[in-house]
Design a protein around this nucleic acid. Sequence first.
DNA 1: AGTCTTTGTCGAAGCGCTTCGACAACCTAT
DNA 2: ATAGGTTGTCGAAGCGCTTCGACAAAGACT
Lengths: 337, 337
Amino acid sequence: MVTLAEVAQHAGVSASTVSYVLSGKRSISGATRQRVEQSIRELGYHPNAGARALASSKSNIIALMVPLRTDMYVPVMMEIAIAVATTARMHGYDVLLLTGEEGPDAVRRVTGSGLADAMILMDVQLDDERLPLLRGTDQPSVLIGLPADTSGLTCVDLDFKATGALCVEHLAMLGHRDIAVIGEAAAVYERHTGFAERTLDGLRSRARELGVRLLHRPCDGGYDAMAVTLARILDERPDTTGFVVQNESAVEPMLALLRQQGRAVPEDVSVVAVCPDQVATQASVRLTSVSIPAQEMGRHAVERLVAKLDGHGKDEVVLIAPELTVRASTGPAPVRS
Amino acid sequence: MVTLAEVAQHAGVSASTVSYVLSGKRSISGATRQRVEQSIRELGYHPNAGARALASSKSNIIALMVPLRTDMYVPVMMEIAIAVATTARMHGYDVLLLTGEEGPDAVRRVTGSGLADAMILMDVQLDDERLPLLRGTDQPSVLIGLPADTSGLTCVDLDFKATGALCVEHLAMLGHRDIAVIGEAAAVYERHTGFAERTLDGLRSRARELGVRLLHRPCDGGYDAMAVTLARILDERPDTTGFVVQNESAVEPMLALLRQQGRAVPEDVSVVAVCPDQVATQASVRLTSVSIPAQEMGRHAVERLVAKLDGHGKDEVVLIAPELTVRASTGPAPVRS
DNA sequence: AGTCTTTGTCGAAGCGCTTCGACAACCTAT
DNA sequence: ATAGGTTGTCGAAGCGCTTCGACAAAGACT
């Protein structure tokens, strides 16, 4: 274990000088800097993280709380997590992975111990029990997702309300008057997950404005659940010609079922998905979709956080504008028989 | 920020006594312990992580290197990561999330700085460039996955060779003589990912032993790629009646394509998948599969690591025995026309 | 009763780093 | 030439904790 002191001795300077070379917080002559850097290289010196954290009261670690449950959007979560880790590294931070399991205690533990300098929370509930803690501490934080009350918080998310509106608009413009929404599992709505409700909100209000009939049904993933859900929808609203799907694991089963029933996409029915691009392009019909910009969300979150850590950067809500990409799954509504 | 000293003062004992109450490394009288614990609670004390790490040279952090690329098994990776985080917490450790991006440098950085006490590597290549570093340090590590040379290393993985063998056996037993293997994307084989090659090895050697014809084709995920691959296979080996699929994102497209071609599963062709249970049960035909025990792998890895950190625990390779669950996608081979 | 353990507590010395004030040495402007 | 400012370096004081040796006090044994 090479220490700062050893580097200093090797370079013939004091410890503080080495520290200043490393941090750049005071000016150092070119000659000295080079000598020190040389010594650092020769000795293979790595600053000790604990000592640094202690002396500077900064750990250079960002905590990331991911949901424990894996009933939705797993690849999206993963992509966000990776984007967070990658972006954080670019700013000199490492990422501590916390699962939602500990709940508010994890927040207390991390802020209290100085383990992390800041934190990012994913999978925020509308009325999340961690929020009071965040508001009550001076440790910077960013939420990925939107709670009901965003005052005093910084949030990053896709504008799901606009997303819902966009989907309805697209279908309405193509002449569809009866639209069915296949949503996340019922449990997701029951625990008041913001994005799901906001999407629904956007869908409904736009549908009302455009005079389009809208039917929403939650749906567990998988083929069997989808079969039941689809049957019910078509039973209740036989004239449905447009579908909005917000549930990755329902996409492919749905396409398979439609095919099986002899309903052609997009000739007979149109499908718009809210899902990552990868899912949309790999599906058996290339799906018109609003993509979930996971990378961008992760990147944004870190950048907001770093800005806060650097002193600038205020509380604000960043809503990423949705983009609808037209692919092969939507077309003009069929002429009514 | 409440410090140890403040707790000590509040409880009327010395700082070291408080420390010993916390660590349990020396015996403390019941009365004193209670007084100290009371003070800790009243003051809301949380030990400072940096100071702890510095004084004890232990950070209580485990580093987890996940692959940057997301071209395969994303949900599995996520599940492992979550299992690692959860299990680590149960042993008093936190998890630092590193992406493969930095490569060997990340290993150097983490071991050198004492940021983490130990590390877990995922997505190990057969000839991984991080291995020499691991062997050259005294910091404990565990690999999830198997490199070519496991000497001096601790590894945890599903026994993919046995997995391959098991799949062939099952199909052979049902009378299938021509089996096609639909594998991961070609890139996965090109970079010599251990599990893919080991599965193939198991498939081939067992097929040879049982006198079964085997054709292996890599396949990118998605419907279009699958369509091409399937067409080629059936062109080359029209008598194929058994399929082994090791590629999550090829499963559903394949089932859709078979259905479309009028080949019934399992009456005309049988399909065995190597995938997480969730995928197998949610597919449009409930798939006979060998499951990928993500949770178990993550848990095992942490437990091996903690054992090493505690002094016991030697280098060893833990291969988890595969289990094949028969569901609705396999049946007796059709009688030859 | 005296010696030997055991038990519970304390004081002090660091862990390796950052950071502040001090201060030579050197420039620059008057 | 001298006062005033820069610039580059150093020494020392901590950051909050762990841990070691020391040592009273109390119990166990002859």
